[in-house]
Nucleic acid binder design. Structure first.
Lengths: 331, 331
DNA sequence: ATCACGAATTGAAACGTTTCACAACGCTCA
DNA sequence: TGAGCGTTGTGAAACGTTTCAATTCGTGAT
């Protein structure tokens, strides 16, 4: 910057003003400085800016698995919203490993990030509290933060399941099966709970729970094969799967033989509305999570958090998912 | 850091030494300083370190689309390899937009990144040369860099297609169809070229080219439907799809009616080996790109680039993909 | 008792910005 | 003529590290 100042025949402070508050500088000077910048190929040093500013213009985002479209979409939306605030999103994947999660938190702390968005692996690590105490806003993503001092943005899985099963009832089904597992996963438990609530409210409706070892296509196919072997009278007339992969596997098993038609004999609905859901042989109904809204809301929460740090009660945003009805339930 | 020094009763320089070269400091002192650090909750300021060091410990990675598993895998591998060098990967998605690409390059430049990994949208922007001239190593990813002053890591799509079609010939097929498009895409052209080369070498083999408007499941299904309507004698006995999505659509169309069996009547092979390829009704043969190796190699190239900057001839790494034979070709 | 030496520690400069109190200048107005 | 004002521009301090030459100290050799 000093070189630019010399080349333009002005002082260092003026160059800084041209960069940060050009309206305070005479237009002829501005031009001269810009000319010098171009000629010298000057590029600001962000480290020095940050050092001076005390915090960076970046926000850290640590997700469980960047390969998961759910998080990819959140990251994408967060990046866009951050850009509106002239912030950059730094992305980290913990891959379900608490040590990697901690390493990222530490790294972001050292970088004095503007704020931290975290989809936590398990227990909230102590360093998170330290961050907050030092004035860095923290927002939990995809985790209900009630009971913690942190803001949070999450999705109501119980409500999502309610939507799905109510839809099955609406199209006249009563013998409903819930397929999902392992039940150690919160998502699986919540979605099952939502299903149970709806069935409880519908006189004549019954819920059968089929637990799977994983949320995968293959697990779904196994369930489908099992259903095919059962006497027709004992089969459900609708299946709600805890995610789309299961539903796809089920659909494969059912359509492969052609003995059972979807949705005529069995209606099928999944969860997550992955991209592939609309491209299956029978387009799959599903429940879509508002990933974009989650990412944007998280960034907003972060930006709105003023220096009031402790004064402030944390805000908890809980989104409700959206039903996407396709042929697998509506015919 | 000054506070830590005071608390531990040592000088500022000693604290720095404890952090960066503990072997040069008496062990009792080291302990005392660490105690002070813990007590005060001291966290290094990365901006100051970078300012002093002149460059950051981050490398920038700009990909076309982080939602694409190909790039997700590359990013993942690059992150891991970078960690071995005590570097952090900053991820950006250009989304095929040259302006966003430029914005990321500028941002990374301001951050004085250690190096830049770029999967370029189109023409290489001028700022890329500026970066290199100032000593920041640049590595092109998924783009052959011959003819440019930049290192590059890419995959040989022609060779991949060769593998696929040679495999089809090996299992006895001769009437082969290539399905892919639009042919404006380099990948599509290269894969078609590879197919043509193999067929040209195989006496008796013939290649039919079926152009599609997109590389999607739906486009594949349309091709499948068209094949079903053709008189059996005129149908190919093997299809090589330019990517897995096309192959999945084709498979859906063929298996839905049950008139044509895969692989008995038509063998089918895709490209990319996406996760879903192994979970289709008939597991899909495919060509796997060594995404992990690409990410690692790119980081290695970056790290190995010494200050020799201009002296150095750029290195070009070209990986050969790998055949993944599943039931859709082998029965 | 002196010296040389290595190990441990110190102190200050430097990195490249931003910020802010202040100076310089040209006006207008009394 | 000079006071007062607004507009431009200046210069130095400060941000928190790392680095390196210089200093101190204890030890063994002479």
């Amino acid at each position: 910057m000093r070189d630019v100042a010399t080349a333009a025949g002005v002082s260092l402070g003026t160059v800084s003003n041209v960069l940060n508050a050009p309206e305070k500088v005479a237009s002829t000077t501005v031009e001269r400085v810009h000319a010098a910048i171009d000629e010298l190929g000057f590029v600001r040093n962000d480290a020095a800016r940050q050092l001076r500013a005390g915090r960076s213009r970046s926000v850290g985002l640590v997700v469980l698995d960047i390969g998961n479209p759910f998080f990819t979409d959140i990251a994408h939306a967060a990046t866009g919203r951050a850009r509106e605030h002239d912030l950059t999103v730094l992305l980290g994947t913990s891959g379900d490993d608490p040590r990697i999660e901690r390493a990222f938190i530490d790294a972001f702390d050292e970088q004095r990030v503007h704020g931290l968005l975290l989809s936590p692996v398990g227990e909230l690590p102590e360093r998170l509290h330290r961050l907050r105490r030092r004035g860095t806003p923290v927002v939990l993503v995809d985790r209900d933060g009630r009971g913690t001092p942190f803001h949070s943005v999450a999705v109501d899985d119980v409500a999502g399941a309610t939507l799905a099963v109510a839809h099955l009832c609406d199209v006249g089904r009563r013998a409903i099966a819930f397929v999902g597992g392992p039940s150690g996963l919160r998502q699986v438990r919540d979605r099952r709970q939502g299903a149970e609530e709806v069935v409880g409210r519908h006189p004549g409706a019954r819920l059968e729970v089929i637990e799977t070892p994983a949320l995968s296509v293959l697990a779904g196919r196994a369930v489908g094969d099992a259903l095919l072997r059962r006497p027709p009278a004992t089969r459900p007339d609708a299946v709600f799967c805890a995610n789309d992969l299961l539903a796809i596997g089920l659909l494969q098993a059912l359509t492969m033989t052609g003995d059972l038609r979807v949705p005529d004999d069995i209606a099928l609905i999944g969860y997550d509305d992955i991209e592939f859901a609309s491209s299956t042989v029978v387009p799959l109904s599903s429940v879509r999570q508002p990933t974009g809204a989650i990412g944007s809301a998280a960034v907003d929460l972060l930006v709105e958090t003023r220096a009031d740090v402790d004064a402030e009660e944390p805000t908890h945003v809980l989104f409700t998912p959206e039903l996407v009805a396709r042929r697998s339930t509506t015919g």
